[in-house]
């Protein structure tokens, strides 16, 4: 069996004030460094937000944004391949629910060959084990570094 840590992916999280142009500044920096964004989401609160993204080179993205003065951190997430058809999300959510794994937040994207669900969970190892045990497919971290 493959090592579970193989499926723990580094997401970058960036603190941003909630005002026009901040996302453009982040995106421009990544474009200049030729860093590709696979998926991203914005979580917003009153006056500020956190931009979360899966990129092809998290280390370089972290360095670039930090140099620009942004506050950046890495967060461990997992990415599950879903069937892109009715019931796809249900399967994954049910496995995690049955295992007592809580989802802190999540976002999804439609990849080239499947829909992908990005998950921040409270017990990553448990989640990986259960998903693999149910024949589910996880994206490996090698795609993102």
């Amino acid at each position: 069996m493959e090592k579970k840590s193989e499926y723990v992916i580094k997401q970058i999280s960036v603190f941003s004030e909630n005002r026009p142009g901040r996302l453009a500044a982040i995106a421009e920096a990544l474009r200049k460094e030729k860093i590709n964004i696979f998926a991203f989401s914005i979580a917003e609160a009153n006056g500020f937000g956190v931009v979360r993204a899966l990129v092809n080179n998290p280390e370089r993205a972290h360095e670039t944004l930090t140099d620009m003065g942004f506050m950046v951190s890495f967060t461990d997430v997992i990415a599950v391949k879903m069937r892109d058809e009715p019931g796809g999300l249900y399967e994954t959510a049910r496995i995690l629910g049955d295992a007592g794994v809580n989802i802190e937040y999540s976002y999804a994207y439609s990849g080239k060959d499947a829909a992908v669900l990005v998950l921040r969970v409270d017990q990553a190892e448990e989640a990986i084990e259960r998903i693999l045990a149910h024949g589910g497919e996880l994206l490996s971290r090698s795609l993102f570094s």
Partner: peptide
């Protein structure tokens, strides 16, 4: 300003 060491990915921590 939020301190760099205090930055958390979680909105609830920031709140």
């Amino acid at each position: 300003e939020v301190g760099r060491d205090a930055f958390s990915d979680k909105i609830t921590d920031l709140m």
